[in-house]
Design a protein around this nucleic acid. Structure first.
Length: 364
RNA sequence: GCGGUAGUAGUUUAAUGGUAGAAUAUACGGUUGUGGUCCGUAUGAAGCGAGUUCAAUUCUCGCCUACCGCC
């Protein structure tokens, strides 16, 4: 399932083997919650060589996409996506106030944003849904606590997360599908340790660290990440959920993280923040009004080859929404190339140099 | 020429005899397991002149401008 091929200190390159092909880690997954990456066609994803995406099984279920997906014998054929698909479980949606009604030990009671119906999501149920979606990697149901939540609350969520993880392992029957666990623990060191140890002990194909990047200061996030990573077996694939800024990825990879997903690159793209090898560029700013340069001078994506900053700036100012397609494409392309360079440098045992140089050049 | 109506941020507008509110535009930030194309902060306004009044963007008059009607 997962094999580490190269190591450079804590950073590593590995291969994750799934029902729809093998992919090299570290990698970044664009988010396709509702079976599409916003403003990116699958042709676009193929062209930028994004081989893994993550969808949300629970949202697919709520949006009544499941019947059609089953008719197509799985989400890959439904979306016409040739790569690997992860599915998230809906646990993160507890942080959306308009979405959640209540949580107890049995599961999470949601109010569907699509039709207002009440739905109790249980571990068993999400395993069934994820299996029907037919993703390559399913995530267990977890209970996330917000930043600032009390120790007692974080502890309660953690215990629930553990109980549900056991139930998911029991309910998971799909042999073609890998199952990843998620550890929690809020922002308390002892809980992080406890949770990582517990979930690490279950029969799972990979380990995710959840509940981070929720608005906490960076030093807190890295501290909590360290606490979790320390208690996860080295040979397991390690997935940090929800983190997606270029600097964070490079830093987290140096700590041994293999897999990432986040809306950060796509959301920033829609809001006009462009990732470049020299750092963030806010394409709406007036200084780009007449700029003939490409979005990123060091990028060879088709957007950078075709269009000027002035043009994208203009499209955004007049709300011609096609700019989102261009900026989304560029940011995701950037993430893919970043991961390529990371893997290459680890293989050459030059990751720390790469990291140092990248972070030096990448201005906030 | 006569009569009517209206003049408030760049634009569209609100309220008011006493601190002129918003939307949009502009400027700059933010965004991290997607409730979206979002959010935050800042800049920015009474056509001109006179009168009444302690105080006028507000009431009165004149001028100017725009629109409408009439000759």
């Amino acid at each position: 399932m997962f094999k580490i091929s190269h190591k450079d200190k804590n950073a590593r390159v590995g291969v994750l083997k799934t029902a729809h092909g093998s992919v090299e880690t570290p990698f970044f997954m664009p988010v396709a919650t509702k079976a599409t990456v916003k403003h990116a066609s699958f042709e676009d994803l193929e062209r930028m060589k994004a081989k893994v995406i993550i969808s949300n099984a629970f949202v697919l279920y709520l949006s009544r996409g499941l019947d059609a997906i089953e008719k197509f014998k799985g989400i890959h054929k439904f979306m016409k996506f040739k790569g690997v698909v992860f599915t998230d479980c809906g646990g993160f949606q507890v942080l959306r106030e308009s979405f959640i009604l209540n949580t107890d030990d049995e599961g999470i009671l949601f109010k569907s944003p699509f039709d207002g119906k009440k739905i109790l999501l249980t571990p068993k149920m999400i395993m069934d849904i994820e299996s029907r979606v037919g993703s390559d990697v399913a995530m267990v149901l977890d209970d996330v606590v917000e930043y600032g939540g009390s120790y007692e609350k974080a502890k309660g969520c953690m215990k629930r997360t553990h109980k549900w993880a056991e139930e998911c392992v029991k309910a998971h029957k799909n042999k073609k599908q890998l199952l990843f666990g998620i550890c929690q623990g809020g922002f308390y060191e002892d809980l992080r340790k406890k949770s990582a140890k517990f979930v690490n002990g279950l029969k799972l194909d990979g380990m995710a660290i959840g509940g981070l990047c929720l608005g906490e200061p960076k030093d807190v996030m890295y501290k909590m990440l360290d606490c979790s990573l320390k208690h996860i077996d080295e040979e397991k694939p390690k997935y940090l959920m929800g983190t997606g800024s270029p600097e964070d990825l490079v830093k987290c990879i140096s700590k041994g993280v293999d897999i990432f997903d986040s809306v950060f690159p796509t959301q920033n793209a829609r809001h006009g923040t462009i990732f470049t090898w020299k750092g963030k560029l806010k394409i709406r700013n007036s200084k780009y009004k007449f700029d003939k340069k490409p979005l990123d001078e060091d990028c060879d994506c088709y957007v950078c080859k075709s269009f000027s900053r002035a043009y994208i700036n203009y499209l955004m100012r007049i709300s011609e929404h096609v700019y989102m397609r261009y900026t989304t494409y560029h940011n995701l392309y950037f993430m893919q190339r970043l991961m390529e360079r990371v893997r290459k440098s680890i293989k050459a045992k030059k990751f720390s140099e790469f990291k140092k140089e990248f972070l030096k050049g990448y201005k906030q």
